[in-house]
Design a protein around this nucleic acid. Structure first.
Lengths: 218, 218
DNA sequence: ATTGAAAGTATTGTCGACAATATGTGTTGA
DNA sequence: TCAACACATATTGTCGACAATACTTTCAAT
């Protein structure tokens, strides 16, 4: 993947390859949230120099998966409940706009593909975010800056916590219905409606996660 | 400054110091848009090793001021007209949400300060973005993720093109009025209205820039 | 004269070593 | 017993050199 323009790229340099590996390891929790990143240890593990590893860590910081403090080192990000909810608020704003622009700019073929994606979604509960409805809308918005913000800066974090929290346990049915409504708005080329529905959809997800977190606390 | 959490930080490492210098040089156009970054040349100029300089370049890439291609090197970003307008669309979404949250979360003291900022704005047309109205609202939204996206990922680019285009020649009067309306909404704690007004305000700026670009083309 | 290949040059990517800073441990003093 | 200082250890930051890749120039062939 290699974090450029939100479009998966084949890693060219060693640093990019290590970045991809570390990214995967962090998202899947193999390197747990909050844990410290040891440069000598990981450099030895991946059999690369510390220079390449540090480059990779810099990229991880750029996509918000680690936090680096000067002269101290990097740690895997660990979001508090509030910080997790903050991301949903940002998503509401950005994906809402993405939906609006997608309604205006997606072509027929893309709309078709998105719809068939939606139909598959109802049965196969695929965990691959690359083939999910939200991702399809982001790609369809045709605003590269928006794409990059969502895909480069939030995408990985979202994957990480989706992994950790288990993909919003038990809201699939209502979420699917909401996706259907958004799809209709896209087909109608109704940007305003698409944005409105997308925002409401993400707000509901947020509320749902909020409940999960409250229950988890007990 | 040193690009962390949108809050100016004193540079600790050499890489951070060089990043700050390069950031400034790019924003002010001292290193012109589109120009190539020569690692050996700049390393010699700043009297640092290439390792530190490369670290700095990585940070520049993270805040979207340069684009790096593997085995080729980094170039200062150069936005097309469309790409510049894309940023306004993203700002509409993000700063709209920031205004909403600011209305809900800013305390009295912050509101006071913002208002006095607004009064100063009408006379002294300060070019320091750190003391500008939009920045104040972003800081006041209390959503760190939102702050970081705006301040780390878009702030520098905005400064750069504001510098280049000369701060939206001749829209200060109407823009100031719009700021006043937003301020009123904040004082009313009316988040929905604040978001609505902020979005309209940025949309108008976008239209204004669009006109400037069309005229420039002739 | 233009196109293509090949050699040469310059730049980027990677490495290992050293310096600077932070962390952990042990000792001393109150 | 606890606090604070000093020392020892480990990690990060920085450096210069080498390897790999890209770019430029030269030359030859059609």
């Amino acid at each position: 993947m290699s974090t450029v323009k939100g479009i998966k790229q084949v890693p060219i340099t060693i640093a990019e390859r290590v970045f991809d590996s570390l990214c995967q390891a962090i998202v899947t929790g193999k390197i747990p949230a909050g844990s410290k990143i040891s440069e000598p240890e990981l450099a030895k593990y991946y059999e690369v120099s510390r220079a390449s590893l540090r480059d990779a860590i810099g990229r991880l910081e750029a996509c918000n998966l680690v936090i680096r403090r000067p002269n101290v080192g990097a740690s895997v990000v660990s979001l508090s409940d509030e910080e997790l909810l903050e991301i949903y608020t940002v998503r509401e704003a950005l994906e809402g706009m993405a939906a609006r622009q997608a309604a205006e700019h997606m072509n027929e073929k893309e709309l078709d593909e998105l719809q068939s994606l939606l139909e598959m979604e109802s049965q196969a509960n695929s965990n691959d975010i690359n083939s999910d409805f939200h991702y399809g809308i982001v790609i369809g918005c045709k605003n590269n800056r928006l794409k990059r913000l969502l895909c480069d800066d939030l995408y990985h974090l979202m994957r990480m916590y989706r992994y950790q929290l288990g993909r919003e346990s038990g809201r699939t049915s209502s979420a699917s219905k909401e996706h259907g409504l958004i799809m209709d708005a896209l087909l109608d080329r109704d940007g305003e409606m698409a944005e409105l529905l997308m925002r409401r959809h993400i707000r509901k997800s947020r509320k749902h996660i909020e409940m999960l977190l409250i229950n988890k606390a007990s």
